[in-house]
Design a protein around this nucleic acid. Structure first.
Lengths: 160, 160
DNA sequence: TCATACGAGTCAACAATACTGACCTAATTG
DNA sequence: CAATTAGGTCAGTATTGTTGACTCGTATGA
């Protein structure tokens, strides 16, 4: 059913809307329990995740990834620094920059949250199989905008 | 790169986190401009979408899909009814129920928002090809929880 | 070297979306 | 008829986002 030729049909795309809503909702929810116990939210998780994936990232680069305002990030970042999950260091080349890294506690927390999500992805990978996973990657990569695609490709090498 | 065997690797799953974040962000953003012009938000879009896809749905069924509280939905639904996008009708069998449908204006608005997202999915479908789309569906379906999967299957007939 | 631009932090105010918990009405059902 | 259910409503709060203005210190180019 729904053969998805060159031109996606109406029902193809309606299904895609459903899929994106439910998969994203349940994937992000997976980490919520652990976050709530610590008085943190999803915004903290996102910051932790992208700092962990980009050690030494500058504040402005992180802002560009998250696409939120400086004030929204500041709230979250201040909490993470105060609670010892994130460390700041002045840039060597440009001392105005604050290079962000996870502390040991930050790495441990991020891993804990990641493990919750891993529990959801693992079975999905096994059930779907390698080819389906490759297709998933290909479609997801094509849905996002150019800047995000460039980021993905830089991290994961030209998304096969 | 990242062969995705039976067991997903760490980098497989890290990439999946990136993909879900960026694809969801950019897909939902696609409709935001049109929404903002009308003083509506994403919560309104979600309600419009699921009512359009389930004409005559009850309030409690819609709550179960969205997984938000009655109060959160009421705020959004009141606005949509007041502005003439959604109509309510008493259930024939159970007159306590308010069966929700889109008005002509509601359908037109939902379609307008859908077209913005279609513009993002269309090229993605063409670039990725039918097999990749099938894989995308398979993985996304497996990421969500059982209840969501049952909903998807009921709508789209046992996911391909 | 000095004006300008830039990275970052901060303050105040506000908006959207979610939450809890309590309470009400009307209709259904045992 | 009593209990349950569908739905609505009120009051208060939390999280995450926004705008706009302002400061501080560092780079950088004329």
């Amino acid at each position: 059913m729904s053969e998805s030729k060159d031109q996606p049909t109406e029902s193809d795309m309606r299904l895609a809307q459903d899929l994106l809503f439910f998969a994203y909702r349940d994937f992000t929810n997976a980490a919520d329990v652990a976050l709530t116990e610590l008085g943190l939210g999803r915004a903290h998780h996102r910051a932790l995740f992208f700092i962990g994936r980009n050690p030494g990232i500058t504040v402005s680069d992180l802002l560009a990834i998250l696409r939120i305002t400086k004030q929204s990030l500041a709230r979250v970042l201040t909490a993470l620094v105060d609670q010892g999950y994130v460390a700041q260091a002045s840039g060597r080349a440009d001392r105005r920059q604050r290079l962000l890294t996870l502390t040991a506690a930050g790495s441990a927390l991020e891993r804990k949250l990641f493990d919750r999500q891993r529990a959801r992805l693992g079975p999905a990978w096994r059930q779907a199989g390698p080819e389906a996973v490759a297709g998933f990657r290909c479609v997801m990569r094509a849905i996002m905008d150019d800047a995000a695609r460039a980021y993905i490709d830089a991290h994961d090498g030209k998304a096969d």
